[in-house]
Design a protein around this nucleic acid. Structure first.
Lengths: 146, 146
DNA sequence: AGAATAAAAGACATCAAGGTCTTTAATGAG
DNA sequence: CTCATTAAAGACCTTGATGTCTTTTATTCT
């Protein structure tokens, strides 16, 4: 019921980049890792994936770093979940019963499906930008260090 | 959004014991493991835990095996989840944002809390016995082999 | 008591997620 | 062109969930 660490790093990383992009064109991995208290090299892997998937832009070399693109803030959280690699086993029984499906539902099946659909729709309709409270002065604290 | 394999083994194991207890007083690990297509020794560990936690009764030696007790079918799924060791991090942000709580909620906070509470209450109110469809002739297939 | 049976217990093996360290490639400044 | 800088890539380590194998303990039957 809680997403992976990798997902958390990705989300917070993107939010940090978006936030600092208001002030400067690029942020470096070093700064992000320190500010978010996240293992630097591991974060590097996550960011690389985000770039490859078109969520962020990166530039190598001096004055390089990460920045957002036009679509970054419109990307739904569900996409981030896919990218950070939860197989999202929709369709398989939460309780790991075999042969539990719409044709042969277990007694909880309907209720579980309803809850799942609500999750899915919440995650699909919420976009990264929806979590970015630029107005809120200490928003950075929500994503930064303890 | 899907529980651990260990949880699945525990649930299916208990259901299998409850089901066969209608016919014979005890079932052996061997039979359960084969019928459920589950690794025998690993299942042994899970069953041992269930016995220690009072979910099942076990007897060693010839004609020994596992059986249910008076309360087994009244145990809520939430208890099985605790026993099979999900820390159930209620209270921590699903999105892994820091400092996201009722005082300083992220924009999704309320919706997520609502969904979580629904899950919690479903898992607390559904009892093991609720999943046991003795009336349904091929119920065994739901928990047994593929 | 002794043999057979079955769970309990404990020592390892495997695998994926998460994390660290080093090397390579790209880019801008002088 | 060369150098410093920074992301990308790859090799390896750690840890927890899962799985296997062997030994011990309790029980029943003869």
């Amino acid at each position: 019921m809680v997403f992976s660490k990798t997902f958390g790093y990705a989300l917070r990383g993107v939010l940090y980049v978006a936030l600092t992009n208001e002030v400067k064109p690029r942020v470096q991995l070093e700064e992000i890792a320190i500010q978010l208290s996240v293992p630097r090299h591991f974060l590097g892997k996550v960011m690389k994936k985000l770039v490859k998937e078109g969520v962020l832009i990166s530039i190598k070399g001096p004055y390089g770093g990460f920045s957002v693109n036009e679509t970054t803030l419109q990307i739904p959280l569900l996409r981030l979940i896919e990218i950070t690699g939860e197989p999202e086993e929709f369709g398989s029984c939460v309780l790991r019963l075999r042969k539990c499906n719409a044709q042969n539902p277990c007694p909880m099946h309907r209720q579980i499906e309803t809850l799942r659909r609500q999750w899915q729709s919440l995650l699909a309709s919420t976009k990264i930008g929806d979590l970015l409270r630029k107005d809120q002065p200490d928003f950075i604290k929500s994503i930064a260090t303890l």
